[in-house]
Amino acid sequence: MDIRSPDLFIRGPSPLARLVFYCALAIACIVVDFRFHKLNAFRNMVSALIFPLQEAASLPALLFATVKHAIETPQALQAQNEALKQQLLRQADQAQRYLLAQEDLSALRSLMGLRQQENATHTVTEIVGMAHTPFAQKIVISAGQSSGIRVGSPVISASGLIGQITAVNLLNSEVTLITDKNQAIPVMAVRNGLRTIAFGNGEPGTLSLPYVPIASDIQAGDMLVTSGIDGLYPPGLAVGTVKSVERDSVSAFARIQCVPTSAVLTQRYVLVLNVPDRPLDGDLPNLEQPEATPSGPVRKIKKP
């Protein structure tokens, strides 16, 4: 290391001025991106530029998976194949009855003059990895703008709701998981139709229901599905199971913890539901019964 003589003539602005300039620029970026979402085009461009590097960085893991797959015994694969065939048969039965039920429902709805439910198209895609930010629960999937993915679409796995698309790049998209602290999902208990809102806790494997009055009929083991009243998630997607209910006379609300149905870390393929556009503000889908839960833009509700 050579120690150079100090610069006798300072060229350009002082280091402090430059530091202030770059910090101000960074803060401006943060504000514009976070508050106004105006830098998405720039982010898409940079993201497309670094895409080959991302692919290269995922090669070691891919190689490992390939080698692991290659040394898996044929017996194990055969057993897996058998299990999948049986699962397919079981689900075929359900699927056929579902078709019938769907017909019945649509006939009944038209008889009663209710609005028909829209059918969502879907895109099968692969989980590329967890997003690297430690400040959010996000995953990255391998379908982006080029596959017609849009911000806001729900993402499900075979076992239930995983999350929602929150950013779409050219070739991949980010899914904010339902366990993220900023996520709120309108849910309904399957057993008695009790409607409330589930919030993520910011850590994997838990959800909480902060707005259930202590007198409500909810108990451990209750299945929760999306209620569909926000117009964002279609109704009936499995969200989680109630794990524990604590009723405290001090608080008006019960303390309820849930376990999400879908364990993200074990999934490889997921389904993005392309829900048709629906008016979100004010004009919510017509509701069959009066609501106990607040409606409107649900994601903006703050936890107490």
Partner: peptide
């Protein structure tokens, strides 16, 4: 920031500092 899918500018601020 783009690689970590965090808000643009967060790492830029830290690295500049």
């Amino acid at each position: 920031d783009v690689a970590d899918s965090s808000t643009l500018g967060i790492h830029a601020l830290g690295y500049s500092l």
